[in-house]
Design a protein around this nucleic acid. Sequence first.
DNA 1: ACAGTATGAACGTTTTTGATTGATTTTAAA
DNA 2: TTTAAAATCAATCAAAAACGTTCATACTGT
Lengths: 249, 249
Amino acid sequence: MLTNERHEFILNMLAEKQTIKIQDVVDATAASESTIRRDLTELENQQKLERVFGGAVLPGRNLMEQSVSDKSTQHLQEKIRLARFAATFVQEGESVFLDAGTTTFQMIPFLKDKKITVVTNGLTHVELLNEHGITTYLTGGLMKSKTGALVGAQTAQSLQNYRFDRCFLGVNGIHEEYGYTTPDPEEAAVKRLASSLSRKAYVLADHSKYNKVSFAKIMDLAAAVMVVDKMPDDILAVMEKKTTVKVES
Amino acid sequence: MLTNERHEFILNMLAEKQTIKIQDVVDATAASESTIRRDLTELENQQKLERVFGGAVLPGRNLMEQSVSDKSTQHLQEKIRLARFAATFVQEGESVFLDAGTTTFQMIPFLKDKKITVVTNGLTHVELLNEHGITTYLTGGLMKSKTGALVGAQTAQSLQNYRFDRCFLGVNGIHEEYGYTTPDPEEAAVKRLASSLSRKAYVLADHSKYNKVSFAKIMDLAAAVMVVDKMPDDILAVMEKKTTVKVES
DNA sequence: ACAGTATGAACGTTTTTGATTGATTTTAAA
DNA sequence: TTTAAAATCAATCAAAAACGTTCATACTGT
């Protein structure tokens, strides 16, 4: 049995059983314990698995878990429902911009079977997009360690090279008078530019964002289609004067 | 059996079984082991297959393994020593380009206390750089899932906006006549451009790369300072005609 | 006949492998 | 909680397998 075959075998075995013990692999492959041990060490270096005492387990979804863990589960469920709905707008063959942010991040699993091209300025996004086999371009720019977003002049210049069919943005504040806002002026600039380069722009917002105002203005409410969920009826009444879409539940 | 016939036979056998062992081919063709070996080497140069220890696999089948993996621990130790040495060239306040690649990746921990600005096209690099508190710009571009590198026209355009004091590149092959080579033409283009934008370019290479020739040429040997480690003395004799630096051990 | 290429055997080198050792971690009993 | 036994681990070493290189020979087409 070739080394590569053995590696693939181990990964298959792991994918199937979630957890493997070294002895099980030894028995199944007829290779020595030392060899299997070496295989596991190398596969761990490749981040294809994670070693534990006695065997190995599937690698942790570090980035996703990280970005997901800081929000409450209820909020997360809401975001996922919102994201799934937003993803239905995307048609085959389109080009899409995904803003860096946790809500747009949740859209990715729902895009996996569409033949689309995605551009994003989110570092965490590009990895998940690739795992789902979606052709992905990353904008250049300065890395903001806190949010994993790329911003600045380079990002703007990169964006100028693209035109999008659809553009999905996350925001921190929604206000009738002050429009969409977010804490970071540089990220706001990226969002504004992306939406101006897009045939159609969508803002993904759960109810917690309404009537909040953050530091940096992105644009007026009317400049994008707002995809909302669980908003109080009186708010929706105001919103429906604008182009607003509500999740069908 | 004619050479061409044998080649075709091997490719058919490979297409059918996904992976082949040298001994199996020897038995099936009644040719000598040497001949089959030569066949495989040539077919690999034609990118018709990919050699692994003991046989060959379909190309692109598990390139993930080759590119992301860092082979044995011994190789890794060698790379780390090389990386530490290379990092000593970087002075305070300089701007540095770090190529996507495993050897340059190992440099990052040794850069952490310097006040420098780093530009990279490596997705994995930018995260570690940020953990070490280093100001980091990422080039834009198309995401290559195999290597985690950004490539293409966007990457080139992003790079044009910078000038570097130093630029560190990984390569797959070093050859007196054919220069530095790497498997992917697009990555080669990025490396070449980056080095041309840099006051000083360094190629990091362990001894396993010497006398290897990969598919895409990056540039001639003389175009960069080669940082080598553990190279046989006779090779060094040749090298020292060029600008070459050896790790002090 | 001759130059150029392909072949197979032989050689020394590199890589992989399995067994052994002593250290470390877990488990279970005191 | 402490202690001892069992299991697992990393490190080392030598044997085996696979490797590239060289060289002499056989084959090819001109």
